[in-house]
């Protein structure tokens, strides 16, 4: 793996390739559940991967951002609320 970088997901380190989206980095580690739905607290993960559904909106570096539209950065801090990080 060239350009390997590290992000943290719920404080655990996760190795990934520079350039990939946060959603792809999580999915590549079999992390499917990103959050829970506000109404029923049902488990949810990325769905459309094109920025439309907002299912992948998670806390990235202190802001709610769409994981499918955000590129990983070395040292990035990802928090999956209500989800176990794999």
């Amino acid at each position: 793996m060239t350009d390997a970088i590290q992000i943290t997901v719920n404080q655990r380190p996760l190795a990934c390739r520079a350039g990939m989206s946060v959603a792809a980095a999580l999915l590549a580690q079999d992390i499917y559940q990103f959050r829970t739905s506000p109404a029923r607290r049902a488990p949810r993960g990325a769905f459309c991967l094109m920025g439309a559904c907002q299912e992948c909106a998670i806390m990235i570096d202190g802001h709610i951002q769409r994981a499918c539209q955000t590129v990983v950065r070395d040292g990035m801090c990802v928090v999956l609320a209500g989800a176990s990080a794999g």
């Binding site: 499917y32 739905s37 949810r44 990325a46 769905f47 459309c48 991967l49 094109m50």
Partner: peptide, 15 residues
């Protein structure tokens, strides 16, 4: 269809 692990089909083309 809301379960994590269900994705769109066009979504697959994005990945």
């Amino acid at each position: 269809w809301t379960l994590p692990g269900v994705f769109g089909l066009a979504a697959a083309t994005v990945l």
